[in-house]
Amino acid sequence: MLVLTNNHQLELLTDDIAPVPKLGKIKPFRTQLLKWIGNKQQQADLIISFFPKQFNTYFEPFLGSGGVLGVLAPKKAVASDTFAPLIQIWQTLHNHKELLKKQYAERYALIAQLGKKTAYESVRANYNRIPNGADLLYLCRACYGGVVRFRKNDGYMSTPVGIHDPITPDSFNKRVDIWHIRTQGACFLHLDFAEAMKQAKEGDLVYCDPPYSDSQAILYGAQTFSLQRLFNSIAACKARGVFVVLSIDGTKYSGRKLCNIAIPNGLFEREAFINVGRSMLKRFQMDGKSLENHEVRDRLLLTF
């Protein structure tokens, strides 16, 4: 039986960026900044335990909500995504964290003025007129099930308001302060994944968490995503001596379905399966019905 530890993670953290206790158990970092489908923050410690013991710059070219980045808190990172409004959120966090707090508070204040549903629909309508990070941030926190979905033909954000109340500005501000510290080593870029991965050099580490072809077609950019193109970029990285770790479809329906992915022979040296619990997307689709038969495991593929 494989026994996994958090030792790799500890060696990559700096005391000034993300202080951790030297002895005893480490409390997992679970505070989320954004809600996002496919968020890996709950599984980040386990994923990180598979990372090489030493590496140089950390790359995350499908950033999303940055679950692994936030837990890892690397000294140096290139964090990128092709979704411009999403990267606006991260760049504002990095460069103008007080502005990020203000943007959220302004939209939250609409609840008292308009009511939760009308306030949400007002923000969503503004986002759909002019996609931007400030509106997307609030929608992520307030939408139904945390599932930010987009129409294929025009990118229209269509998720209704959630049944929950979004967190208060005071609570959000604390999250901003924590994430600002943990991501200080990162440079946030609006880049296609292939362009980002071209920057990785020998000894760097790339963690890829792309849209899943079996389950995430409603997400931004998932409809045009090419897994084969990603495999080509991974092969080029491997040839340069870059470490690559890929999260991809594994099993669904509590293990009854193994997702069929055409993985190139010889590209990866090993694989593992990571239990990610019950499907967040399926929870949204089933509208609160029982999810006992919808346990999901992701496949983790490594080039080393």
Rank of each mutant, 00 (worst) to 15 (best):
Gln32Glu: 13
Glu106Arg: 11
Val176Thr: 05
Ala194Pro: 00
Ala73His: 02
Arg182Asn: 03
Gln9Phe: 06
Pro211Thr: 05
Thr31Ala: 13
Met197Gly: 00
Ile26Gln: 12
Asn6Val: 11
Glu269Lys: 12
Ser290Asn: 15
Lys116Leu: 15
Gln88Phe: 04
Leu205Pro: 03
Trp90Val: 05
Lys101Leu: 01
Gly155Asp: 09
Ala239Leu: 12
Gly255Arg: 03
Ile26Arg: 14
Ala84Lys: 15
Ser65Asn: 04
Ser226Pro: 04
Phe150Lys: 00
Ala134Gly: 14
Ile87Glu: 05
Glu60Thr: 11
Phe172Arg: 07
Tyr127Arg: 07
Gln216His: 13
Gly155His: 12
Ala73Glu: 02
Gly146Phe: 05
Met286Gly: 03
Leu136Thr: 04
Leu13Arg: 15
Pro166Asn: 09
Ile178His: 07
Leu137Asn: 01
His180Thr: 09
Asn39Ile: 02
Pro85Gly: 06
Arg182Thr: 01
Leu205Asn: 01
Asn126Ser: 15
Gln42Arg: 13
Pro28Lys: 02
Ile111Gln: 09
Phe50Pro: 00
Phe83Leu: 01
Ser171Asp: 10
Arg182Leu: 06
Ser171Lys: 13
Gln184Tyr: 01
His180Ile: 08
Cys259Tyr: 02
Ala200Pro: 04
Pro74Asn: 11
Ser233Lys: 05
Lys117Gly: 03
Tyr108Thr: 01
Lys201Glu: 15
Leu137Trp: 01
Ile248Asp: 01
Phe62Asn: 04
Arg107Val: 07
Lys101Ile: 09
Ala235Arg: 11
Leu300Pro: 01
Phe304Gly: 14
Gly277Cys: 08
Val68Gly: 00
Ser171Pro: 00
Val3Arg: 11
Lys238Asp: 08
Lys201Phe: 01
Cys187His: 11
Leu12Ser: 07
Ala105Met: 08
Met197His: 04
Pro169His: 03
Leu258Asn: 08
Trp36Ser: 03
Leu63Cys: 06
Asp204Trp: 09
Cys237Asp: 11
Asn95Gly: 09
Ala262Leu: 05
Ser122Pro: 00
Thr118Gln: 15
Gly67Asp: 02
Glu106Ile: 04
Asp16Phe: 06
Thr31Lys: 14
Met280Asn: 10
Leu23Ser: 14
Asn132Gly: 12
Leu93His: 02
Phe188Asp: 07
Asp249Asn: 13
Glu11Lys: 15
Glu292Lys: 14
Thr118Ser: 13
Asp81Ala: 11
Asn128Ser: 06
Val161Thr: 11
Ile263Trp: 06
Asp287Ile: 07
Thr224Gly: 08
Ile163Cys: 01
Cys208Lys: 03
Arg240Thr: 08
Glu106Pro: 00
Val176Ile: 14
Ala44Pro: 03
Ser290Val: 06
Ala134Leu: 10
Ile263His: 05
Asn39Trp: 03
Lys102His: 12
Lys116Met: 08
Leu10Cys: 08
Thr57Gln: 10
Phe268Cys: 07
Ile47Gly: 05
Leu100Lys: 03
Phe231Gln: 05
Trp36His: 03
Arg149Gly: 01
Lys101Arg: 11
Tyr156Met: 08
Cys187Glu: 15
Asp287Ser: 12
Leu258Pro: 00
Lys22Ile: 10
Leu136His: 05
Ala73Ser: 15
Asp192Glu: 13
Phe231Lys: 09
His94Gly: 00
Leu46Gly: 00
Ala18Val: 04
Val161Trp: 09
Arg240Trp: 06
Ala239Met: 12
Thr168Gln: 05
Lys25Met: 07
Lys198Val: 13
